[in-house]
C-alpha cells in the first residue's frame, strides 16, 4: 500500500451520480467513483451489470441521462468520442474492434491520427510535412511494436492473426495515442493462462513506464486482484462496492452478489 500512496496522483476522473437508461432498461443508476492519476482501477460485476456502459459513458459513446463526469478538473455532461480522444482517453473493446483489412503497422499508425497535422496538398504529393511526419510517427509506432513484442507480424493484416495477438495489437493501437487514461474492456477475455500472464505484464508495464491511468473491466478474479489498486463492483447498474482488493474480498455484499452467496 505504501507503494501505491507514493505512485498515485490527484484525482484524474470523477463520475458523479451517473444514471443511464435505454428506454425502460436502467443500465446505470446513480454511480459515483473516482480514479486517481496513475491508478489501476478495475470495474467488476456479473454480466449485464453495466460495466461496459460505464466505459462508454466515460469516453462519450453514451451520454448519461443524469450526473456528470469530471475529467482533468473539467465537468462535462456531453462529449463526442473524438473529443474524448483529443483529451487523452483511449480504449480497447470487449470484442476486438481492429481494422481488419489493415496491417498491424497501419492499425497502430491509425492510433496516432490525432498527432498528425500535414495538410491535404502535402498528403496528395507525399512531400514535406506529410512525408516527414510519416517517418517520425513510424519511429514511435516501432517503439510500441517493440514494447509489445510483435515485431515479426508488423506487416501482417490483422484479420489473419490469432485472437491473443489481435488483443495485443488493439492495446498497441490504444497506446499509440499516448493516452492519459486507458480504458480496457476485458483485455483478457478468451485467453489462455500464458496469454493472460503476458497481457497482465503489459498492462502493469504501461502503468509503470508511461504512468498511464488504467480503468479495466475483467472477469478473471485472480487477474483483477493482482493487477488493480482499487476495485469498483457493479451489480444491476448499481455500485455495491469500492475499495482495495483486500477490502473487496471481505465485503459481504460483494461476496453475495458476485463471488458467491455466503451462508
Amino acid at each position: 500500500m505504501n507503494d501505491n500512496d507514493r505512485k498515485l496522483g490527484p484525482t484524474l476522473l470523477k463520475a458523479d451520480n451517473i444514471s443511464l437508461a435505454f428506454g425502460g432498461v436502467k443500465a446505470l443508476t446513480d454511480i459515483s467513483f473516482e480514479v486517481k492519476e496513475r491508478e489501476v482501477l478495475a470495474i467488476i460485476g456479473p454480466n449485464g451489470a453495466g460495466k461496459s456502459s460505464m466505459l462508454n459513458v466515460i469516453n462519450g459513446v453514451y451520454h448519461p441521462n443524469a450526473g456528470s463526469v469530471t475529467y482533468k478538473g473539467t465537468v462535462r455532461q456531453q462529449m463526442k468520442p473524438h473529443e474524448a480522444a483529443k483529451q487523452g482517453i483511449a480504449r480497447t473493446f470487449q470484442n476486438i474492434a481492429l481494422f481488419k483489412g489493415m496491417s498491424v503497422l497501419d492499425n497502430i499508425m491509425t492510433g496516432r491520427t490525432l498527432k498528425m497535422s500535414a495538410g491535404f496538398l502535402a498528403q496528395c504529393l507525399y512531400v514535406g510535412r506529410a512525408r516527414n511526419e510519416e517517418i517520425e510517427h513510424r519511429k514511435k509506432v516501432e517503439e510500441i511494436i517493440d514494447f509489445l513484442q510483435i515485431q515479426s507480424i508488423r506487416k501482417t493484416p490483422v484479420g489473419r492473426l490469432p485472437y491473443g495477438l489481435q488483443k495485443r495489437v488493439e492495446l498497441g493501437r490504444a497506446l499509440a495515442a499516448e493516452p492519459t487514461l486507458l480504458l480496457l474492456d476485458e483485455p483478457m477475455a478468451g485467453m489462455n493462462i500464458e496469454e493472460k500472464e503476458d497481457m497482465s505484464r503489459f498492462i502493469l508495464d504501461v502503468n509503470d513506464e508511461f504512468g498511464t491511468t488504467i480503468v479495466l473491466i475483467e472477469h478473471d478474479m485472480g487477474v483483477v486482484m493482482d493487477l488493480s489498486d482499487r476495485i469498483v463492483v457493479l451489480d444491476y447498474g448499481k455500485k455495491i462496492g469500492d475499495g482495495t482488493p483486500a477490502e473487496i474480498r471481505n465485503n459481504k455484499e460483494v461476496i453475495d452478489a458476485y463471488l458467491g452467496v455466503s451462508d
Binding site: N59, V61, A85, E134
Partner: peptide
C-alpha cells in the same frame, strides 16, 4: 498510404473504433 487513407480504411473496417481513436 498516408493519414487520410488510414482514416478512410479505419472508417470502412470499424467506424465506432475509428471515432474513438479521434477520426
Amino acid at each position: 498510404r498516408g493519414r487520410i487513407g488510414r482514416a478512410w480504411m479505419a472508417t470502412r473496417d470499424m467506424d465506432v473504433a475509428a471515432e474513438i481513436i479521434g477520426i
